[in-house]
Amino acid sequence: MKSITVTELKAWRDGNEDFQLIDVREPYENEICTLDGILIPMNDIPAEFGQIDKTKKVVVHCRSGKRSANVIAFLEQQHGFTNLYNLEGGILAWIEEVDPSMEAY
């Protein structure tokens, strides 16, 4: 499984890299803090995976990186995705290393 650090993700954003960001947390978590990705809660992925682009890089994130890793494993095994990156440490790492002004939970 490919992964990306929060500092690499910040560099992608700052450099206008063409990628898609998928948030697999629950809506209430997204309301606390967000990286402005497309919200598809983990349990909705089997029905909603068609929203995920297969033609460009896709970063999948959650709170700590565990749910997103599970989602990526599912998508790679069941649907043949090869363009997915797990955000190491999830949004908690983003808050700690990139934007401490965001609310952690």
Rank of each mutant, 00 (worst) to 15 (best):
I52S: 09
Q20V: 10
E96T: 14
Y28W: 13
F81E: 07
Q78A: 14
N70G: 14
N70T: 03
Q77R: 13
M1C: 03
I52Q: 10
A73Y: 08
E48C: 13
P27S: 04
V98F: 00
E48G: 10
V60Y: 00
E96N: 14
N16A: 11
C62H: 07
M1S: 08
H61K: 02
M42Y: 11
D36A: 13
A11T: 14
E97Y: 04
G90M: 11
W94A: 00
F81S: 09
N16H: 13
A104I: 08
E26V: 10
Y85E: 06
K2V: 06
D18N: 15
E17H: 13
N83Y: 03
I95P: 02
V98Y: 00
N43F: 10
I91M: 01
I95W: 05
Q78V: 03
E26D: 12
I22H: 05
I40Y: 10
I32V: 15
I91V: 13
K57N: 00
D99M: 08
I45Q: 03
A93M: 00
P100A: 08
I95M: 06
Q77N: 14
G90D: 09
F19P: 02
Y28L: 09
D18K: 15
L9P: 01
K2A: 12
P46E: 05
P46A: 08
P46Q: 07
P41D: 09
I4N: 02
E8T: 15
V6H: 00
C62F: 09
E88K: 14
T34K: 15
D36Y: 14
T5Q: 06
D36F: 15
V24A: 05
S68A: 12
R13S: 11
V58A: 03
K57G: 01
D53L: 00
Y28C: 06
Q77T: 09
A47Q: 14
Y85A: 09
G90Y: 05
Q51N: 14
I38N: 08
I40S: 11
H79L: 10
G65F: 07
P100T: 09
N86W: 01
S101V: 06
D44Q: 15
N43H: 13
I32T: 12
K54Y: 07
Y28P: 06
I38G: 02
E96Y: 11
V59Y: 05
R63D: 05
P27D: 03
I4T: 07
I52P: 04
I40H: 10
E17Q: 14
L39I: 00
K54L: 07
E8S: 13
D36P: 02
N16Y: 04
L84C: 03
R63N: 11
K10P: 05
L35G: 00
V59F: 08
D99A: 15
E31C: 06
E76I: 11
A93K: 01
E8R: 12
M42T: 05
L75V: 05
T5W: 04
D36Q: 14
N70F: 02
Q77F: 02
E26R: 14
E17T: 11
Q20F: 08
E17W: 04
